[in-house]
């Protein structure tokens, strides 16, 4: 009981501290912008730990954060192998192939108005479908190893990327295109010097959406069959063994990988589209 009271106290303290910072004079500083969510996260973790200990919650229902951390530390080699199998081999190769193919197809689609009017509604339609459902089929075609996971990722990221890139390639004003014409620029020159750079904010929007889709696709595809490693494999087998600390450790890996991947793409975006209003520093 003392633990539960202590947890309530910690919650009040953490929230109070955040309220003071957020409503105080320092709220606009970058230290506060980073500090407040960190304090909130730490508060939640401490309360989680205290409640699990205080209420005697069994480890097969909810393991404590310290248990997850020790499982993480004890299984670094396994986690790394799973990460390499699922993320580097499956998700990342699929991401590169899928986004690259979508980009090239988008350029062709954009060139021919007929294709754009035909393929874009179909692409929009497919982008909203539960494409993870193709996983069992692709696993059957490409086998249990990472190739089938990459294939699922390719199918998943292709259409969101295609739709975004086509929208981006059209995002130039008549004035800009006319200027290129007065320069006597050819189609290829207009494409390379005006339209692809102008499309970049849209392209990166697609790339960012695709980062999380890629991880989802790779992990879910492993639920349908995989070699004896991989994040999805480890999650489904550890759930079967009621080793939930391992499941959580794997989820921590997925969370870190997902946000780092997203962060990396966002960083490249900042670097490529520095001219765009949304990237300018005030």
């Amino acid at each position: 009981m003392i633990y539960v009271l202590f947890a309530a106290l910690i919650w009040a303290m953490g929230w109070g501290l955040n309220a003071v910072i957020a409503n105080g004079r320092a709220a606009k500083t970058s230290a506060a912008q980073i500090g407040v969510p960190l304090i909130f996260g730490a508060t939640v973790l401490i309360i989680w730990e205290l409640l699990v200990t205080g209420l005697n919650i069994s480890a097969v229902i909810l393991p404590a954060p310290t248990a997850i951390a020790s499982a993480f530390g004890a299984n670094l080699a396994i986690l790394w192998a799973d990460f390499f199998q699922t993320f580097v081999k499956g998700a990342f190769s699929g991401y590169v192939i899928g986004c690259g193919a979508a980009f090239l197809v988008a350029i062709i689609v954009d060139r021919y108005d007929f294709l754009r009017r035909g393929l874009l509604p179909v692409g929009n339609f497919v982008a909203a479908l539960p494409i993870v459902g193709t996983a069992p089929i692709l696993v059957m075609w490409f086998g249990f190893d990472w190739q089938s996971k990459a294939a699922v990722v390719v199918v998943m990221v292709f259409f969101p990327m295609l739709v975004n890139t086509v929208a981006g390639l059209r995002d130039t004003s008549t004035m800009q295109r006319d200027l290129m014409r007065t320069y006597g620029a050819s189609y290829a020159q207009t494409l390379l010097k005006l339209r692809i750079p102008a499309a970049m904010p849209f392209v990166f929007n697609g790339l960012k959406i695709a980062t999380s889709l890629a991880l989802i696709g790779a992990i879910v595809a492993e639920f349908f069959g995989s070699p004896v490693l991989g994040m999805g494999f480890r999650i489904s087998t550890s759930v079967g063994q009621l080793a939930l600390d391992m499941v959580w450790a794997e989820i921590v890996v997925a969370a870190i990988a997902g946000s780092l991947f997203y962060g990396l793409v966002a960083k490249i975006e900042q670097w490529v589209t520095f001219w765009h209003p949304s990237q300018r520093k005030h």
Binding site: P37, F40, S212, L215, I251, A254, G258
Partner: peptide, 21 residues
């Protein structure tokens, strides 16, 4: 300030991984 950053970060995380658990 406390919750919003986490809500944004959570969109980059493959939450489906939690499903079996």
């Amino acid at each position: 300030m406390s919750v919003m950053p986490w809500a944004i970060v959570s969109q980059t995380i493959p939450i489906v991984a939690l499903a079996p658990m």
